[in-house]
């Protein structure tokens, strides 16, 4: 409760006290945007943790060995994640549903256990120290990126591309009969998702002093998936709400912090049973909007129809 009281009565103090939490919420919100893009095009891909790792390691390795400025390192990290996303997508996107999910999980684990733990330049199992880490400065690009990315992806769903994604999600066969090049548009979604995940990984290294390979395992990917499931995927706000809610929750109920995963699991089950469309349903914040508001909207619409 103190958490909320402080949030409203003393926002500046709240910000100073919870800076790392806010940064983490921002990172998770960006990851939620990343998984939203693939979900919106109807693909259950769980490779986000892998692309994060690529973004993070690339950024840190570049700041260790190259004189390039940090923003360039981060950009290269995100672009490399996108490029590898393209290569991974070539074979993997022929799969659908659960098979796609398993293949992408396979990619995450193969990257971590096969590549990161065996390449000397990544510090192998030891991880890497990040020379350019700046926890307090790192929060600024995060706080700027979240609204910009949200806006971009929200507008993207209204473009020709976004419309094709929605059609593919609803019915691939019908989409191709409408002239939509299904494999190509799926690939675009997968690459954009990889780009955003890689960017989130690069941002995260900026607030941590250390890149730790265990951060980028399947557990992380599943955590990102829960953002999308709990928040809902009919629009970009859904996964972000899920990310904010699930990241802040252990702070709100401190007494349960030790049982964080248990609480997350219970929330996930409750959402799947009672609100399968997620907290944010079709047409915005359905559950948060008061009932008179929805009633008023329906009446408005009915009036407009006549």
């Amino acid at each position: 409760m103190d958490f909320f009281i402080q949030l409203f009565t003393d926002p500046v103090g709240f910000y100073n006290q919870h800076e790392l939490l806010i940064a983490q919420i921002g990172i998770n919100a960006i990851l939620a945007i990343s998984i939203f893009v693939t979900f919106y095009s109807g693909q259950l891909t769980l490779a986000n943790a892998g692309f994060m790792a690529i973004g993070a390691y690339t950024t840190v390795i570049m700041s260790l060995y190259l004189p390039t400025p940090l923003p360039v390192d981060m950009l290269v990290g995100a672009l490399l994640a996108a490029a590898i996303g393209f290569l991974v997508g070539l074979p993997v996107l022929r799969l659908r549903g659960v098979f796609l999910a398993i293949a992408t999980i396979g990619f995450v684990e193969a990257l971590r256990l096969g590549v990161i733990l065996n390449l000397p330049i990544t510090g192998e199992g030891q991880g890497l120290k990040n020379p350019s880490a700046d926890p307090l400065g790192g929060i600024v690009p995060i706080l700027i990126s979240v609204p910009i990315l949200t806006y971009l992806v929200w507008r993207l769903t209204h473009t020709r591309l976004g419309q094709a994604w929605a059609a593919i999600r609803e019915d691939e066969l019908a989409a191709s009969s409408n002239g939509i090049n299904v494999p190509a548009y799926k690939m675009v979604a997968f690459v954009i998702s990889a780009l955003v995940a890689g960017y989130a990984g690069a941002l995260e290294t900026h607030i941590n002093f250390f890149v730790d390979p265990t951060e980028y395992s399947v557990t992380r990917t599943i955590q990102i998936l829960t953002f999308a499931v709990v928040g809902g995927t009919t629009n970009v706000i859904g996964p972000i709400v899920g990310a904010v809610f699930l990241t802040a929750l252990p702070e709100i109920v401190r007494q349960f912090a030790a049982y964080r995963d248990v609480v997350n699991g219970i929330i996930l089950i409750l959402v799947i049973i009672f609100r399968p469309q997620g907290i944010v349903g079709r047409g915005g914040l359905a559950i948060i909007a008061p009932r008179w508001w929805t009633r008023w909207r329906t009446r408005e619409r009915a009036a407009a129809a006549h």
Binding site: T159, R160, L161, Q163, A164, A166, A167, N178, I180
Partner: peptide, 10 residues
């Protein structure tokens, strides 16, 4: 969605 081919990239 059926008009996909007649929509320019926007």
């Amino acid at each position: 969605a059926g008009m996909h081919l007649r929509r320019r990239d926007d």
